[in-house]
Nucleic acid binder design. Structure first.
Lengths: 218, 218
DNA sequence: ACCTGAACACCGTTCAAGT
DNA sequence: ACCTGAACACCGTTCAAGT
C-alpha cells in the first residue's frame, strides 16, 4: 500500500487557493489545480467524480466556517448576526457567492445552516412557509449583491486582459447611457453604489427585509 | 458590395433558439450558433466583438419584451404588474435569468427598465436609496428563484447525460440528509417547494417584500 | 490503492487570406 | 464589407496501463 501523493482535503485546500487567483469562476479549472499540485489532471478524477463534485466540496469547506449566533437573543438579532457572519465568510473567499449559487446544498453543513436559519424564524412564531420565503429572499439578496459588487470591483482594478477591458467598457457605457438618456433615478442608484460600501448596502437591505418580516407579524 | 450572408439580428435570434436547446447556459457556444447558421465560427467575430457581447445582445433582446404597467394605478399594483411581466418573460426564455446575472445592463432598454422601477417607488414617496434597495432586492430574489427552480426541474426530467445524472443524485442526497439528520424545517421547506409552483413562490415572496416596503413607509 | 499519458471531443479567439 | 480555414491555447473527461 503505497502512500497517497495527495489527499482529498489537500485538493480542496489547493483548489480554494487556486480559485483565489482566478479573476472569474470559469477561469478555475481542474488542470490548474492539478498543475499546482504537480499531479496529472486525470489524477483528480480518482479523488473526485467530476468538477462539479470538487466545487461542491469547496462550497462545503467555505460553509463550514459559518458559526451560529447566540440563541438567547431575540430573532432579529440572531438573524442579523448570522447573516453578518455569512457576509463576512462570503467576502473573505473570492467567488464564494458564485460557488454557492452554482452548487447544490447537498451536505450536512449547508443543510444544517439552512435549517438553523428557519428554526430561528419558526421559533419566533413565523410559519414554515414564511420562514422559507424569508430565508431564500435574504440569501438571494446577499448572493446577488456580492456577485454584482465583486464584478464591478474587478473591472475597476484590472485592465490587463482583453476580457476585463471589454467588461470595463461596458460599465463605462452603462454610466454614459444613464447620463445621456437622463435616467435620473439610475444616476442616483449608481452614485449610491459608488459611495456606499458593500457592507453598508448589505446592512441596509437586510434591515429592509427584516422590517418586512416584523410588519407581517403584527 | 456583396450581400451579407447573415445579419446581427439574425445571429441574435438563432442564438436564442440555440440557447433554448441547451440544458445549461455553459453548453451554449459560439460554435453551435455558427453551425446552426451554417457559417464558420470565426464569422461571428466580425459581427460581435466576443461571446460576452453576443450574450449582452441576447439579454437586451429578451429585456425588450418587458412592457411597462399602467401608471395610473397605485405603486403596489404597478410594481406587482411589472414584476409579473418580468417573471413571465424570464420563464418564457430558458436561462434568461442566468443571462441577466452574467451580463451587465449596459443598454438603454435595461437601464430604462431599471429607471422605471425606481421611478414608481420614488413617485410613491420613497427615497432614491430605498427605491434602489427595493429594486435590487426584488430583482435578486426573482433571479435566484428562477435559476434555482429551473435547475431542479431539469434534474427531474433528464437523466440522459452523465452530468444531469450526477446533479440528480445530489438532489436525492439532499433529501436523504435532510431526512436522516431530522432537519425538520428543511423538510418543510422541501415539501413547500414541491407543492407550490414557481409562480406561487414568486407571488408570495414579492408580497413579502412589498409588505416590507409598505411598513417602512408609515 | 493510487497515479500517469495519451487521447477524445470539445471550447473562445485570432489572423492571414480570400471574395 | 464580409467570410473562411487553419491554428493556438485552452477545457473536462475517460481509460488502458503502470506501480
Amino acid at each position: 500500500m503505497p502512500k497517497a501523493k495527495i489527499s482529498r482535503s489537500q485538493i480542496i485546500q489547493t483548489s480554494l487557493a487556486t480559485l483565489a487567483e482566478c479573476r472569474t469562476l470559469d477561469q478555475f479549472s481542474m488542470r490548474k489545480v492539478a498543475a499546482t499540485l504537480k499531479v496529472d489532471a486525470s489524477t483528480l478524477y480518482w479523488h473526485f467524480e467530476n468538477k462539479q463534485a470538487l466545487l461542491q466540496a469547496m462550497a462545503d469547506e467555505i460553509a463550514s466556517q459559518i458559526t451560529f449566533p447566540d440563541n438567547q437573543r431575540d430573532w432579529q438579532t440572531q438573524l442579523t448576526q448570522l447573516f453578518r457572519t455569512i457576509f463576512a465568510v462570503y467576502t473573505a473567499h473570492p467567488h464564494a457567492a458564485e460557488l454557492m449559487l452554482e452548487t447544490i446544498p447537498a451536505s450536512k453543513t449547508r443543510l444544517t445552516l439552512m435549517d438553523h436559519i428557519m428554526a430561528i424564524l419558526v421559533t419566533a412564531g413565523f410559519s414554515e412557509t414564511e420562514a422559507n420565503e424569508a430565508m431564500t429572499t435574504i440569501d438571494f439578496f446577499l448572493t446577488g449583491l456580492i456577485i454584482d459588487l465583486t464584478r464591478e470591483q474587478q473591472f475597476r482594478s484590472e485592465i490587463n486582459s482583453k476580457q476585463a477591458a471589454y467588461l470595463h467598457d461596458q460599465v463605462q457605457k452603462m454610466h454614459q447611457i444613464t447620463h445621456d438618456a437622463k435616467l435620473n433615478h439610475m444616476q442616483a442608484a449608481v452614485q449610491f453604489r459608488n459611495t456606499y460600501t458593500a457592507k453598508q448596502q448589505f446592512e441596509v437591505g437586510l434591515k429592509l427585509i427584516i422590517n418586512g418580516l416584523l410588519a407581517s407579524k403584527s
